[in-house]
Nucleic acid binder design. Sequence first.
DNA 1: CAACTTGTGAAAAACCGGTTAACGCAGGCA
DNA 2: TGCCTGCGTTAACCGGTTTTTCACAAGTTG
Lengths: 109, 109
Amino acid sequence: MAIGTGSSSQLPAGRLEIRPEEHAALVDGRPLSLTMRELQLLITLASHPQRIMTREELFAEVWGSEPRREDRSVDVYVSRLRAKLGQALPDLQLIHTHNGIGYRFSPDG
Amino acid sequence: MAIGTGSSSQLPAGRLEIRPEEHAALVDGRPLSLTMRELQLLITLASHPQRIMTREELFAEVWGSEPRREDRSVDVYVSRLRAKLGQALPDLQLIHTHNGIGYRFSPDG
DNA sequence: CAACTTGTGAAAAACCGGTTAACGCAGGCA
DNA sequence: TGCCTGCGTTAACCGGTTTTTCACAAGTTG
Protein backbone atom coordinates (compact mmCIF):
# COMPACT_ATOMS: atom_id res chain seq x y z
CA MET A 1 0.00 0.00 0.00
CA ALA A 2 1.37 3.33 -0.98
CA ILE A 3 0.20 6.89 -1.02
CA GLY A 4 2.08 8.85 -3.57
CA THR A 5 3.33 12.18 -2.35
CA GLY A 6 4.59 13.06 -5.80
CA SER A 7 3.97 11.29 -9.02
CA SER A 8 7.21 9.41 -8.51
CA SER A 9 6.63 8.17 -4.96
CA GLN A 10 5.45 4.65 -4.59
CA LEU A 11 6.10 1.67 -2.42
CA PRO A 12 6.93 -1.67 -4.04
CA ALA A 13 5.22 -3.98 -1.58
CA GLY A 14 1.60 -3.00 -1.44
CA ARG A 15 -1.15 -4.00 -3.81
CA LEU A 16 -3.07 -0.76 -3.42
CA GLU A 17 -1.37 2.35 -4.63
CA ILE A 18 -2.84 5.79 -4.44
CA ARG A 19 -1.67 8.71 -6.54
CA PRO A 20 -3.62 11.77 -5.50
CA GLU A 21 -1.94 14.07 -7.96
CA GLU A 22 -2.91 11.75 -10.78
CA HIS A 23 -6.44 11.25 -9.48
CA ALA A 24 -5.81 7.57 -9.52
CA ALA A 25 -5.94 4.54 -7.30
CA LEU A 26 -4.35 1.35 -8.56
CA VAL A 27 -4.65 -2.25 -7.50
CA ASP A 28 -1.83 -4.40 -8.81
CA GLY A 29 -1.16 -1.65 -11.28
CA ARG A 30 -4.68 -1.58 -12.64
CA PRO A 31 -6.71 1.54 -11.98
CA LEU A 32 -9.91 1.44 -10.01
CA SER A 33 -12.70 3.41 -11.55
CA LEU A 34 -13.62 5.65 -8.69
CA THR A 35 -15.63 8.81 -8.81
CA MET A 36 -14.22 12.04 -7.44
CA ARG A 37 -15.88 11.68 -4.07
CA GLU A 38 -14.95 8.05 -3.73
CA LEU A 39 -11.34 8.81 -4.54
CA GLN A 40 -11.15 11.75 -2.18
CA LEU A 41 -12.66 9.69 0.58
CA LEU A 42 -10.14 6.94 -0.03
CA ILE A 43 -7.29 9.43 -0.07
CA THR A 44 -8.47 10.98 3.17
CA LEU A 45 -8.86 7.67 4.92
CA ALA A 46 -5.57 6.33 3.64
CA SER A 47 -3.75 9.49 4.64
CA HIS A 48 -4.39 8.63 8.26
CA PRO A 49 -3.75 4.90 8.50
CA GLN A 50 -4.86 3.19 11.70
CA ARG A 51 -6.49 6.35 12.91
CA ILE A 52 -10.16 6.33 13.72
CA MET A 53 -11.71 9.20 11.82
CA THR A 54 -15.09 10.60 12.70
CA ARG A 55 -17.73 11.35 10.11
CA GLU A 56 -17.19 15.03 10.83
CA GLU A 57 -13.48 14.81 10.05
CA LEU A 58 -14.07 12.86 6.89
CA PHE A 59 -16.83 15.14 5.72
CA ALA A 60 -14.72 18.19 6.43
CA GLU A 61 -11.82 16.91 4.37
CA VAL A 62 -13.84 15.53 1.47
CA TRP A 63 -16.77 17.92 1.27
CA GLY A 64 -15.01 20.92 2.76
CA SER A 65 -17.81 21.79 5.11
CA GLU A 66 -19.73 20.48 8.06
CA PRO A 67 -22.29 17.75 7.55
CA ARG A 68 -25.78 18.43 8.68
CA ARG A 69 -26.90 16.33 11.59
CA GLU A 70 -28.36 13.30 9.94
CA ASP A 71 -26.13 13.24 6.90
CA ARG A 72 -25.42 9.71 5.71
CA SER A 73 -23.26 10.68 2.76
CA VAL A 74 -20.08 9.39 4.36
CA ASP A 75 -21.71 6.04 5.04
CA VAL A 76 -22.97 5.75 1.50
CA TYR A 77 -19.57 6.48 0.05
CA VAL A 78 -17.80 4.15 2.43
CA SER A 79 -20.20 1.48 1.26
CA ARG A 80 -19.48 2.17 -2.40
CA LEU A 81 -15.76 2.33 -1.75
CA ARG A 82 -15.85 -0.98 0.05
CA ALA A 83 -17.72 -2.51 -2.84
CA LYS A 84 -15.12 -1.41 -5.36
CA LEU A 85 -12.15 -2.21 -3.16
CA GLY A 86 -13.70 -5.54 -2.26
CA GLN A 87 -14.01 -6.46 -5.88
CA ALA A 88 -10.39 -5.72 -6.60
CA LEU A 89 -9.11 -7.06 -3.29
CA PRO A 90 -11.60 -9.66 -2.13
CA ASP A 91 -9.42 -10.87 0.72
CA LEU A 92 -8.73 -7.54 2.36
CA GLN A 93 -10.96 -5.54 4.66
CA LEU A 94 -9.30 -2.16 4.49
CA ILE A 95 -11.95 0.08 5.97
CA HIS A 96 -13.09 -0.75 9.48
CA THR A 97 -16.17 0.56 11.24
CA HIS A 98 -15.95 1.87 14.77
CA ASN A 99 -19.42 1.95 16.08
CA GLY A 100 -20.60 5.29 17.30
CA ILE A 101 -17.34 6.93 16.23
CA GLY A 102 -16.39 6.58 12.59
CA TYR A 103 -14.07 4.67 10.26
CA ARG A 104 -10.47 3.52 10.26
CA PHE A 105 -8.25 2.65 7.34
CA SER A 106 -5.88 -0.23 7.92
CA PRO A 107 -3.30 -0.75 5.16
CA ASP A 108 -2.83 -4.41 6.00
CA GLY A 109 -6.45 -5.36 6.04
CA MET B 1 -0.26 2.83 31.50
CA ALA B 2 -0.61 6.05 29.66
CA ILE B 3 -3.34 8.50 28.95
CA GLY B 4 -2.56 10.45 25.87
CA THR B 5 -3.04 14.16 26.18
CA GLY B 6 -2.22 14.69 22.56
CA SER B 7 -1.99 12.08 19.87
CA SER B 8 1.77 12.04 20.37
CA SER B 9 1.90 11.62 24.13
CA GLN B 10 2.51 8.15 25.36
CA LEU B 11 4.52 6.44 28.01
CA PRO B 12 6.81 3.58 26.99
CA ALA B 13 6.43 1.38 30.06
CA GLY B 14 2.73 0.70 30.49
CA ARG B 15 0.74 -1.95 28.74
CA LEU B 16 -2.51 -0.01 28.70
CA GLU B 17 -2.55 3.16 26.70
CA ILE B 18 -5.54 5.42 26.39
CA ARG B 19 -5.92 7.99 23.67
CA PRO B 20 -9.09 9.91 24.30
CA GLU B 21 -8.74 12.17 21.32
CA GLU B 22 -8.47 9.14 19.05
CA HIS B 23 -11.31 7.31 20.75
CA ALA B 24 -8.97 4.43 21.35
CA ALA B 25 -7.63 2.26 24.15
CA LEU B 26 -4.68 0.03 23.39
CA VAL B 27 -3.18 -2.92 25.21
CA ASP B 28 0.32 -3.69 24.09
CA GLY B 29 -0.40 -1.57 21.06
CA ARG B 30 -3.49 -3.50 20.06
CA PRO B 31 -6.82 -1.72 20.24
CA LEU B 32 -9.54 -2.91 22.57
CA SER B 33 -12.95 -2.95 20.99
CA LEU B 34 -14.85 -0.84 23.43
CA THR B 35 -18.17 0.83 22.93
CA MET B 36 -18.53 4.55 23.44
CA ARG B 37 -19.81 4.22 26.98
CA GLU B 38 -17.18 1.70 27.94
CA LEU B 39 -14.41 3.87 26.58
CA GLN B 40 -15.71 7.02 28.24
CA LEU B 41 -16.02 5.23 31.53
CA LEU B 42 -12.46 3.95 31.23
CA ILE B 43 -11.21 7.40 30.33
CA THR B 44 -13.01 8.93 33.28
CA LEU B 45 -11.74 6.37 35.73
CA ALA B 46 -8.20 6.50 34.39
CA SER B 47 -8.18 10.27 34.46
CA HIS B 48 -8.30 10.13 38.22
CA PRO B 49 -5.93 7.33 39.16
CA GLN B 50 -6.06 6.11 42.73
CA ARG B 51 -9.03 8.29 43.43
CA ILE B 52 -12.24 6.73 44.61
CA MET B 53 -15.00 7.99 42.40
CA THR B 54 -18.63 7.79 43.34
CA ARG B 55 -21.30 6.56 40.98
CA GLU B 56 -22.66 10.07 40.83
CA GLU B 57 -19.31 11.46 39.69
CA LEU B 58 -18.85 8.74 37.12
CA PHE B 59 -22.36 9.07 35.82
CA ALA B 60 -22.04 12.82 35.59
CA GLU B 61 -18.87 12.59 33.51
CA VAL B 62 -19.93 9.74 31.26
CA TRP B 63 -23.66 10.29 30.90
CA GLY B 64 -23.59 14.03 31.42
CA SER B 65 -26.48 14.03 33.81
CA GLU B 66 -27.56 12.75 37.18
CA PRO B 67 -28.44 9.12 37.60
CA ARG B 68 -31.91 8.35 38.79
CA ARG B 69 -32.10 6.88 42.26
CA GLU B 70 -31.71 3.20 41.64
CA ASP B 71 -29.60 3.42 38.52
CA ARG B 72 -27.17 0.54 38.11
CA SER B 73 -25.76 1.58 34.77
CA VAL B 74 -22.35 2.37 36.19
CA ASP B 75 -22.11 -1.06 37.77
CA VAL B 76 -23.11 -2.76 34.57
CA TYR B 77 -20.52 -0.90 32.55
CA VAL B 78 -17.80 -1.45 35.13
CA SER B 79 -18.58 -5.12 34.84
CA ARG B 80 -18.29 -5.07 31.07
CA LEU B 81 -15.13 -3.03 31.21
CA ARG B 82 -13.57 -5.45 33.64
CA ALA B 83 -14.44 -8.30 31.35
CA LYS B 84 -12.73 -6.73 28.35
CA LEU B 85 -9.74 -5.51 30.30
CA GLY B 86 -9.47 -8.85 32.03
CA GLN B 87 -9.29 -10.62 28.72
CA ALA B 88 -6.49 -8.43 27.46
CA LEU B 89 -4.71 -8.18 30.82
CA PRO B 90 -5.60 -11.28 32.79
CA ASP B 91 -3.10 -10.61 35.55
CA LEU B 92 -4.15 -7.09 36.39
CA GLN B 93 -7.08 -5.89 38.45
CA LEU B 94 -7.30 -2.28 37.38
CA ILE B 95 -10.72 -1.31 38.69
CA HIS B 96 -11.32 -1.71 42.40
CA THR B 97 -14.63 -1.64 44.21
CA HIS B 98 -15.07 0.48 47.31
CA ASN B 99 -18.14 -0.77 48.99
CA GLY B 100 -20.78 1.80 49.61
CA ILE B 101 -18.78 4.45 47.81
CA GLY B 102 -17.80 3.73 44.25
CA TYR B 103 -14.85 2.62 42.14
CA ARG B 104 -11.15 3.35 41.92
CA PHE B 105 -8.76 2.98 39.03
CA SER B 106 -5.29 1.79 39.93
CA PRO B 107 -2.77 1.93 37.07
CA ASP B 108 -0.56 -0.77 38.57
CA GLY B 109 -3.25 -3.31 39.19
C1' DC C 1 -27.87 -13.81 60.57
C1' DA C 2 -30.27 -9.84 58.43
C1' DA C 3 -29.78 -5.88 55.70
C1' DC C 4 -27.52 -3.85 52.33
C1' DT C 5 -24.45 -3.64 48.29
C1' DT C 6 -22.44 -5.28 44.11
C1' DG C 7 -21.83 -8.57 39.96
C1' DT C 8 -23.73 -10.33 36.04
C1' DG C 9 -26.87 -12.36 32.65
C1' DA C 10 -30.65 -11.42 29.85
C1' DA C 11 -34.84 -9.12 27.91
C1' DA C 12 -36.53 -4.89 26.01
C1' DA C 13 -35.92 -0.61 23.92
C1' DA C 14 -33.33 2.57 21.42
C1' DC C 15 -29.92 3.55 18.34
C1' DC C 16 -26.60 3.02 14.51
C1' DG C 17 -24.76 1.51 10.15
C1' DG C 18 -25.02 -0.98 5.40
C1' DT C 19 -27.32 -0.99 1.53
C1' DT C 20 -30.49 -0.02 -2.06
C1' DA C 21 -33.49 2.87 -4.52
C1' DA C 22 -35.27 7.16 -6.04
C1' DC C 23 -34.55 11.79 -7.26
C1' DG C 24 -32.27 15.86 -9.15
C1' DC C 25 -28.74 18.05 -11.46
C1' DA C 26 -25.19 18.91 -14.84
C1' DG C 27 -22.70 17.84 -19.00
C1' DG C 28 -22.46 15.77 -23.60
C1' DC C 29 -24.42 15.29 -27.87
C1' DA C 30 -27.59 14.79 -31.78
C1' DT D 1 -33.93 21.93 -27.33
C1' DG D 2 -34.62 17.27 -25.80
C1' DC D 3 -32.63 13.06 -24.55
C1' DC D 4 -29.19 10.27 -22.34
C1' DT D 5 -25.78 9.24 -18.95
C1' DG D 6 -23.26 9.48 -14.75
C1' DC D 7 -22.62 11.38 -10.29
C1' DG D 8 -24.11 13.16 -5.87
C1' DT D 9 -27.64 13.53 -2.45
C1' DT D 10 -31.36 12.07 0.23
C1' DA D 11 -34.60 8.88 2.13
C1' DA D 12 -36.06 4.46 3.69
C1' DC D 13 -35.64 -0.23 5.19
C1' DC D 14 -33.52 -3.86 7.62
C1' DG D 15 -30.44 -6.15 10.52
C1' DG D 16 -27.20 -5.84 13.99
C1' DT D 17 -25.25 -3.49 17.98
C1' DT D 18 -25.55 -0.79 21.99
C1' DT D 19 -27.89 0.99 25.83
C1' DT D 20 -31.11 0.62 29.33
C1' DT D 21 -33.51 -1.77 32.56
C1' DC D 22 -34.65 -5.60 35.35
C1' DA D 23 -34.00 -9.71 38.14
C1' DC D 24 -31.52 -12.57 40.88
C1' DA D 25 -27.15 -14.48 42.62
C1' DA D 26 -23.21 -13.49 45.23
C1' DG D 27 -20.65 -10.82 48.29
C1' DT D 28 -20.07 -7.58 52.22
C1' DT D 29 -21.03 -5.31 56.53
C1' DG D 30 -22.29 -4.85 61.15
